[in-house]
């Protein structure tokens, strides 16, 4: 996966499109911010997602954060390794740490998603 090709939602989820299937995850920046992850709730295969609506939750010791779908479509695969052991995200939020694969509606990712440059700029601002 070419990390430069990822597209990002303002809520820190990323999407990577290949052959009509979007792989979805959360950025390393978000994982670092959440710290001490305890568990993650992911949707079942077959669940319909709407871009901008929550599709799951990730928990640390004393906080719960909603995960927002960067794309609309149907969940076709769930990363069981992450579902079982959310700490994988801390090691690798991208290759091993993808969350779900979604068969998207339409042929391209929503244009509102940020490209890598825009997202890195946003992250740099939030870090201050």
């Amino acid at each position: 996966m070419d990390l430069k090709a990822l597209r990002y939602a303002p809520t820190h989820e990323w999407a990577y499109l290949e052959g009509g299937i979007a792989t979805v995850g959360i950025s390393k920046f978000a994982v670092d911010q959440l710290s001490d992850l305890i568990m993650i709730d992911l949707p079942a295969v077959g669940t319909k997602l709407t871009a901008g609506k929550d599709f799951g939750q990730v928990e640390s010791v004393k906080s719960v954060s909603d995960l927002y779908a960067p794309v609309s479509g149907e969940v076709v695969e769930v990363n069981q390794a992450v579902a079982q052991n959310v700490q994988l995200l801390s090691e690798d939020a991208y290759d091993k740490g993808w969350l779900i694969k979604v068969k998207i509606e339409g042929t391209s990712l929503p244009s509102e998603l940020m490209d890598d440059t825009a997202y890195q700029k946003k992250v740099a601002e939030e870090s201050h």
């Binding site: 305890i38 928990e59 640390s60 010791v61 004393k62 906080s63 719960v64």
Partner: peptide, 9 residues
């Protein structure tokens, strides 16, 4: 397991 509870969720 406090994330189940109302003061957080």
């Amino acid at each position: 397991l406090q994330t189940r509870e109302q003061h957080i969720r």
